[in-house]
Simulated scan of single mutants.
Amino acid sequence: MKMERHLPADILKPFVEHYLFIESEQGMENRVLPDTSVVMSFRYRGTISDEVAGIKNNLPGTVITGLRKSVRLINYLAQAATLLVIFKPGGAAPFFKEPLHEIFGVSLALDDLIGRQKVAEIEEQLNEVNDSFQRIAIVERFLLSRLYHAKADSLIQQTIRQIRMGKGMVRIKDLVSTLPISHDPFEKRFRKITGTSPKQFSSIVRLRNLIENYNPTVDLTEAALSAGYFDQAHFIKDFRTFTGQTPYEFFRSTIYW
């Protein structure tokens, strides 16, 4: 397996976190946990499939994947290769007219949003080059041609920062009380831009923070309490949905993103 990360051009930095190349010589499986980033993928070689809730599907060449609340398995056959665009939280919205919550929990062929002809042009160009930087240049030209809004929504970005600073343990009601907007319009705006509700977004942040900062010397029950879980059964249920495993199984064996 070969993985390369690249940063976006300056004009795209407010929206794109990084690009990630994944190339598999002999085939592999990645366990992908829920995250707060919408991801766009451009497969330029081989076959890639995913598995969600036990259902396997071969993925189209160019895919956009929305936020989700459950684990996803990505299977790369031998010689498969793809370029991923990892958007910042809320960063994909300026490139699409459609509200992003409509793709929550799914991986959708990009054709369904922008038309087959344009996607076919990008796929053909990517297949004709053999250099990572050339592929990034092709994708960046495509992204710039789709940039409908030059700036991210400052109010939603502010709330995203507050949720992340609070490690997902933020009362949405309290958060909205500090904003110049009422709850229902805020919720609708947040869902449209980030791809999910403030509550679900906070839940993803909370569990990822717990996993990324897990210390095996700390009792798991104590770690769950520190993350704001006061019901162990609720914590284990959420964790299994999120990772596909119990906390014990996950921290003993899993490799994840």
Rank of each mutant, 00 (worst) to 15 (best):
G90Y: 10
G91Y: 00
G91V: 02
A92H: 05
A93Y: 04
A93M: 01
P94S: 12
F95V: 01
E98L: 09
P99N: 04
L100Y: 01
H101R: 14
H101C: 13
I103R: 07
F104M: 10
G105R: 07
L108V: 01
A109G: 05
D111E: 03
G115Q: 04
R116P: 08
K118G: 02
K118D: 10
V119Y: 01
V119A: 02
A120F: 12
E121F: 04
I122V: 13
I122T: 03
Q125A: 15
Q125K: 05
Q125E: 08
L126G: 02
E128I: 06
V129N: 09
V129F: 00
N130C: 12
D131K: 07
D131H: 08
S132Y: 15
S132F: 08
Q134P: 06
I136R: 08
V139N: 02
V139E: 07
V139D: 05
E140Y: 06
R141Q: 13
L144G: 03
S145H: 06
R146G: 00
L147A: 00
L147V: 01
A150V: 14
A152I: 04
D153R: 00
S154P: 15
S154K: 15
I156G: 07
Q157P: 11
Q158F: 13
Q158S: 13
Q158V: 12
I160R: 11
I160Y: 08
R161P: 15
Q162V: 09
Q162C: 14
M165W: 06
K167Y: 06
M169T: 06
V170I: 03
V170S: 02
L175E: 15
V176M: 05
L179H: 14
P180R: 04
P180W: 04
I181H: 05
S182Y: 09
H183P: 11
H183I: 09
P185M: 09
